[in-house]
Simulated assay, not measured.
Amino acid sequence: MDSITVGIEPSGNARIIILFQSDERVANFLKRVLERLVQVIEVETLREETSLVREIALLKTKPLKGEKKEQALFRIEEIGGRILEVKEDAIIAEIHGDHQRIEGVINDLGSDVLEEVARSGQVYISKKFE
Rank of each mutant, 00 (worst) to 15 (best):
M1S: 09
V6Q: 02
V6A: 05
I8K: 00
E9F: 00
P10A: 00
N13A: 04
A14S: 14
R15V: 00
R15A: 00
I17V: 14
I17L: 07
I18M: 06
L19P: 03
D23W: 04
E24Y: 12
E24P: 15
V26T: 15
V26G: 07
A27I: 12
L30N: 05
L30W: 05
R32V: 04
L34N: 03
L37I: 12
L37P: 00
L37D: 01
Q39T: 10
Q39I: 11
Q39A: 08
I41S: 01
E42H: 09
V43I: 05
E44Q: 12
T45L: 14
E48L: 15
E48I: 14
T50V: 11
T50A: 10
T50Y: 13
S51H: 07
S51E: 07
L52Q: 12
L52W: 11
R54M: 15
R54N: 10
R54T: 14
I56D: 06
L58Y: 10
L59D: 13
L59G: 08
K60L: 07
T61W: 01
K62A: 02
L64S: 00
L64N: 03
K65Q: 14
G66T: 09
G66H: 03
G66L: 05
G66F: 08
E67I: 15
E67C: 06
E67S: 15
K69D: 07
K69G: 04
K69E: 08
Q71I: 05
A72K: 06
I76P: 00
E77P: 01
E77T: 13
E78Y: 06
G80K: 02
G81Q: 03
R82A: 13
R82P: 02
I83P: 04
L84C: 11
L84N: 10
V86Q: 07
V86E: 14
K87N: 07
K87P: 00
E88V: 01
E88S: 11
D89Y: 07
A90L: 02
I91Q: 02
I91M: 00
I92Y: 04
A93S: 06
A93H: 00
E94L: 05
E94M: 07
H96K: 14
H96R: 14
G97T: 03
G97E: 13
D98P: 11
D98A: 10
Q100P: 04
I102P: 00
E103R: 09
G104K: 12
N107R: 15
D108G: 05
G110R: 03
D112E: 12
D112S: 12
V113Q: 03
L114C: 10
L114H: 09
E115Y: 03
E115L: 06
V117N: 06
V117L: 07
A118L: 08
R119L: 09
R119G: 09
G121Y: 04
G121I: 03
Q122C: 10
Q122L: 12
V123H: 01
V123W: 10
S126I: 08
K127R: 15
K127H: 08
K127M: 08
K128A: 14
K128T: 15
K128C: 11
F129K: 13
F129S: 11
F129D: 09
F129C: 11
E130Q: 11
